[in-house]
């Protein structure tokens, strides 16, 4: 514990700005993964434990396409589309078979998939870690904003994430697909009574969720080392985020991501050896006070 350092940082403008921005950066990348997770839970009431593996797959696909085309843009695109397809296959042929059963059966299917994907990645891309490298466009000195340091690449990530959030929000609130999705989240049998194919809606949501995870993996690939099992820690953190924000609430996921980002950035100053513990403590406290999460609807 180092409360002196924490107080010092909280009273220094430059430290405050830098750590807040770093919290935001951590939070934004987390949000992309968590948004898909919470979307799938909100509609399908399924906790998708394979979400971390989707993220990993996105990063690896980006690595390969980047290597072939030398284009970061194409790499990210391939990651999003490729993972969306994998998510579709996974949902249609495996996950949809256990929608009716209890949560433990779904957990089992997901776990099997995590094991298989980790090994598949190891077989296809090899056991050693990989690094994708930064696109030339972002190899620029960082910007100084209000005394804080912001790398150009992270500024780009924040903007992209914000655009994606807005698009996601528009899809959910302004399109027919979004209306059906929202209706299906509340009452799936009503939706199917209206002649809408709920199976198709579920597949669509799962694909969208998977796409977001793949996108996050592709976007983050230049600043991550790629290894089999890399989805694991991101899975845990995005879980904390969705639980804190409220399972099923996308706005909650955004709030939760930023909170976790800030806990990380300031926690690493005040409690450098217990940052992980702090996140779980926050999760436990919020669950005790409001089990459905900050912005979740009471179940």
């Amino acid at each position: 514990m180092n409360l002196v350092a924490l107080t010092e940082c909280l009273t220094s403008a430059s430290c405050l700005v830098t750590q807040t921005t770093s919290g935001l950066i951590i939070g934004m990348l987390l949000f992309l993964v968590a948004a898909g997770l919470t979307l799938i839970f909100g509609v399908l009431k399924v906790v998708n434990f394979t979400h971390g593996s989707f993220y990993m797959l996105g990063a690896y696909l980006a690595l390969t396409v980047n290597g072939l085309t030398n284009s970061y843009f194409l790499a990210v695109l391939a990651a999003a589309i490729g993972v969306a397809l994998v998510a579709l296959v996974f949902e249609r042929f495996f996950m949809s078979k256990v929608y009716g059963s209890n949560v433990l059966m779904q957990l089992l299917v997901c776990y099997a998939f995590i094991l298989i994907m980790d090994d598949a990645v190891k077989i296809i891309w090899g056991p050693e870690f990989k690094s994708m490298g930064m696109a030339a466009a972002f190899q620029k000195p960082p910007l100084f904003i209000a005394g804080g340091i912001v790398p150009v690449f992270y500024l780009f990530l924040i903007i992209v994430t914000l655009i994606i959030s807005v698009v996601l929000w528009l899809i959910i609130t302004r399109t027919r697909f979004g209306t059906v999705v929202r209706a299906a989240a509340v009452n799936p049998s009503m939706v199917s009574a209206l002649g809408i194919n709920t199976g198709l809606v579920f597949s669509g949501v799962f694909m969208l969720g998977g796409m977001l995870a793949g996108l996050a993996g592709g976007l983050a690939a230049p600043v991550r080392s790629l290894t089999a099992g890399m989805g694991f820690s991101i899975l845990i953190e995005s879980f904390i985020v969705t639980v804190i924000g409220g399972m099923g609430s996308i706005a909650g996921a955004l709030l939760g991501s930023i909170m976790i980002g800030l806990v990380r950035s300031f926690g690493s100053i005040g409690f450098p050896l217990f940052v992980e513990g702090l996140m779980f403590l926050l999760m436990a406290i919020i669950l005790i006070l409001k089990p459905s999460g900050l912005l979740g609807k009471e179940g």
């Binding site: 830098t18 750590q19 770093s22 690094s131 600043v223 991550r224 080392s225 290894t227």
Partner: peptide, 29 residues
């Protein structure tokens, strides 16, 4: 996976030299 908060802390306190025992994939990230 994400060292952002750690890196900004280092930059904040501006040491003249930094020692690290990170290794493997963690060091690359």
């Amino acid at each position: 996976p994400d060292y952002t908060e750690v890196i900004t802390r280092v930059l904040q306190s501006k040491p003249q030299a930094l020692y690290s025992a990170l290794w493997g994939g963690d060091l690359t990230s």
